[in-house]
Design a protein around this nucleic acid. Structure first.
Lengths: 203, 203
DNA sequence: TACTTTTGTTAACGGTGTTAATAAAATTAT
DNA sequence: ATAATTTTATTAACACCGTTAACAAAAGTA
């Protein structure tokens, strides 16, 4: 009997239409302001019907998170396949990663739980500038002592901060509580590499 | 007349008590679940009284963000002053940064808008493992071709991902929209350094 | 004591996720 | 075709949320 099949198909379509409506919401107003009610409104059904297809709001967002990682993985694989030397692959994948993040901002923010606070105002925090200046002055000093005193210190500052923040936030996403001391090796590794990149001559 | 002074002092104290109650909420349940109503309840006043001291909820969180950056800056300065060689300062500051982040998790998450999704479940996403495996296999290959084939590939993978995520998320926090192409130099710089750190011999 | 300003309250508006009770439709069994 | 059953969808509510208008109470000033 084809009735069962049709029912499954309809259920599938319904589910897809929920995700479609939800995604429209996400890309137009960000995932923070996604609401079950707006989805219900968009698909022209009552609210509880959504709970027949998704356990809760988080489950809907999880769907997009998965989609995002799938897309990222596909992108990386595609780019990787265009090169044969591993070092070249790593470089190309890095650029692909960057492009993915900004071409699919909503996915990326969802995938890594970026709350994105007052994005515009964050640069106006005086205390942030203070912290920044401490790091920048040190970078400057390190560059002056190096073999390449003409190096762009602002670029290096950005790199330094990005490495630190990346290490911390990846760690925070993956584990609760303070990570064991062994995880600091990652930090040590990354920072050593960074410092060497400032100091190195053309060896 | 000392009345004005006392009033100012009382207002100050009231403001502080709001922040105190708010902070208790933040450290016990995370900044996501901070609510004006709970603060009002904690200080045993009605809700609107809070709006006499803070424009809105965001203003309260902004206060903690500032506090966080101030604390971070102080910590960095303190650590920096214990060394004289810039390279050593950078290394020590990196470790201090890491420690600060995990010793003051609530501050850090607020400062950098970390939404922290289903922290536990993120590792169970199959699509994430797929993306991970692509990167890891490349890192492995790069290490095998290098002068140090005994290098810990998992450590290097973590470093690689952290660098990428750090670059992206710092960029996303600071600016809306896709960053101009020049920002990719930071990426290029960091990735080059990383690849060199894999390939380098003991020069 | 009367007036004015500050401070605090109640009650509401519009929004959120979620769920119990119930009605309607569709399917199955008689 | 009718009755019983299962599936599906709706209404209405609960318990929250940030924010604000209208109003009462207290404190300070004249």
């Amino acid at each position: 009997m084809g009735i069962a099949e049709r029912k499954i198909r309809q259920k599938e379509e319904f589910r897809a239409s929920i995700l479609e409506a939800a995604w429209q919401q996400v890309i137009s107003d960000g995932w923070q302001s996604l609401s079950i009610r707006k989805i219900a409104d968009a698909i022209e059904y009552s609210i509880p019907v959504i709970y027949n297809h998704f356990e809760n709001k988080e489950a809907i967002l999880l769907e997009f998170t998965k989609e995002g990682f799938q897309k990222l993985a596909d992108t990386l694989q595609l780019v990787k396949d265009q090169y044969t030397v591993p070092a070249e692959q790593l470089e190309a994948m890095a650029h692909a990663y960057w492009d993915f993040a900004f071409d699919h901002k909503e996915y990326y923010q969802l995938m890594f739980g970026l709350g994105i606070p007052a994005c515009d105002r964050v640069n106006e925090i005086e205390e942030l500038k203070y912290a920044t200046s401490i790091m920048i002055s040190t970078i400057k000093a390190a560059i002056e002592e190096s073999n390449h005193p003409e190096t762009d210190y602002f670029l290096k500052y950005h790199t330094y901060l990005s490495i630190l923040h990346g290490l911390v936030s990846i760690q925070m996403i993956q584990k609760e509580g303070k990570p064991d001391a062994s995880k600091k090796m990652i930090l040590q590794d990354a920072v050593s590499g960074f410092i060497i990149s400032i100091n190195r001559s053309n060896c």
